[in-house]
Design a protein around this nucleic acid. Sequence first.
DNA 1: GCTTGGCACTCGGGATCGGCGAGTGCCAAC
DNA 2: GTTGGCACTCGCCGATCCCGAGTGCCAAGC
Lengths: 340, 340
Amino acid sequence: MVEDRKLAVLRAIVEDYVATQEPVGSKSLVDRHPLGVSPATVRNDMAALEEEGFITQPHTSAGRIPTDKGYRLFVDRLSQVKPLSGPERRAIATLLEGAIDLDDVVQRSVRLLAQLTHQVAVVQYPTLSRSTVRHVEVVALSASRILLVLILSTGRVEQRVVELPDDIDETRIAELRSRINVAVVGQRLEVAAESLVALPDEFDPGQRPVVAMLVAALVEATTDHRSDERVAVGGTANLAKFGEGFDVAIRPMLEALEEHVVLLKLLGEATSASTVTVRIGHEGPYRELAATSVVATGYGPGDEALASLGIVGPTRMDYPGTMAAVRAVARYVSRILDEG
Amino acid sequence: MVEDRKLAVLRAIVEDYVATQEPVGSKSLVDRHPLGVSPATVRNDMAALEEEGFITQPHTSAGRIPTDKGYRLFVDRLSQVKPLSGPERRAIATLLEGAIDLDDVVQRSVRLLAQLTHQVAVVQYPTLSRSTVRHVEVVALSASRILLVLILSTGRVEQRVVELPDDIDETRIAELRSRINVAVVGQRLEVAAESLVALPDEFDPGQRPVVAMLVAALVEATTDHRSDERVAVGGTANLAKFGEGFDVAIRPMLEALEEHVVLLKLLGEATSASTVTVRIGHEGPYRELAATSVVATGYGPGDEALASLGIVGPTRMDYPGTMAAVRAVARYVSRILDEG
DNA sequence: GCTTGGCACTCGGGATCGGCGAGTGCCAAC
DNA sequence: GTTGGCACTCGCCGATCCCGAGTGCCAAGC
């Protein structure tokens, strides 16, 4: 079947190009792959593939390299997922299980991902808005200074200091603490914010101003999405692999990595926890990143995606291996979050 | 005075080289600086400076560039501190004052430093060991799971979950909370750790195992210096300025930036809060970083250095400007920490 | 009708080479 | 100690050339 062989040729081109970083010609292709046909035949197929836009020549009289469209076809139809090796799985499991707290989980994941894929890894911190309130602590730092500590189901801790106009005694604080907790523990953040807003009305008129101040600080802490934008980046040193194509590839990537908003947008397209999303080259909104691809997926306890993680690298990358690594890490992280 | 002019020549060479990135010759030197002598004279001085090891020629028949020794002399004796502009000072102040919590302060500082210096900025999180305990919170997550939250004077929060063998009721927890706080609030971490170790003995023998478990977790949290090693890195995109000398300069830097331990060692030499330390090229322990310099200083409330911050960049950098920026940021950050 | 070997052609990359010019060191004169 | 003059050095740049990998096309073969 001719069509099948054409696809086999495309697959072979992608694999060779990713491995060697050099345009691949018809001769070397038949040498390295058991296609069972002559170079001339492969040339015909290549001409057809080029016609259809899957491959291109950097210049006349050079081999072919895949286009973004070619990579896309490869990723969608030609690549089978490459399962991780046993040792790799074990390494992931043991490394992540040693994590102490949420920060540590994120840090470790990002390192892990960078090591496994040899690319730049990006891990978004779990979103605040989808997590629930585990506990609210009210502490008197001095007679009129109150420290509020908000502990979330994901292990995240937010804190705010509130300066009160008047002194307040321990009994009051204890009462406040218990009533606030009764009102919000176990609720999702958005819901908790609503419950909080209604809270001052339940108190004596005399106390309401104080309660209102505390509530305001808490609401601010729950609705402040600044921290949603936190990401950890790792494996930047892998950029050094390039060497060639500096301006085209590395500079824009370094810039993007600084801009966490951009990163989040890139990752954000991948919201489902069960699928690995691949954005190839120009497919994204950023023209400067035309030479880079993003492989990302959501993660979180259950099948609910609290946040995304993934890698950013050159379009010319090992997609099957990378996708497998991203998926594996996402699963393990989700499991850890489930237990914690 | 001849010796004076030789130093003036050195200063001019450093300034020109930093500005143009190109070896500077005798002719262009006299054109751009009011030395009041002819190129020939400058050549004589240059020969002497080269003899003494302050400058060198990349190859015969090229201009001169400063050696590490030349930069050292320049930094120590020839450069006068370049005060920041008013707008710059104001920008620093307003940006840092908008910070919400410790994390935010660090993040903002690192960005600021990167922007001001156009180099890669590194800020170490305040060391745990020198800060004091502000509050310890004990929260029951379930009947037998306890969450410990340790809040420090620097605004840092550490948390640990402890699984108890038996259930524990709220009264006990309240008692534990209050006694633990009485024992440690206001103490430095090392002291607090000691107070904690003695604590179980004050309880009934029946309660001691539980107390001991909580204490162990707290002691671990206070003495765990893992978190001392936390650093924030920013401005990596500034590395793209290089372009040339990729392998020699950028690759090792990217690698060092990944290795936080290495970074800390580099910054760590700068422990004093009042002086800005400069390490030039080969002066440090890392041979791979021979093409890079570090400008760093300590910071912290009062004159006590809780941690370090600084920048890493090519030896060929604007030392006066960079030193001024590093010092200014350190001062403002210290002030913020003082108030918070 | 696909496949294949042959063949002329293209063109980028590396090697070679010569001229240009910035910069030097030295020396004699001031 | 400073200066102008001068011969010399050597890296950079552009021009030229050649090689070889790779192509497209065509005619013959299965």
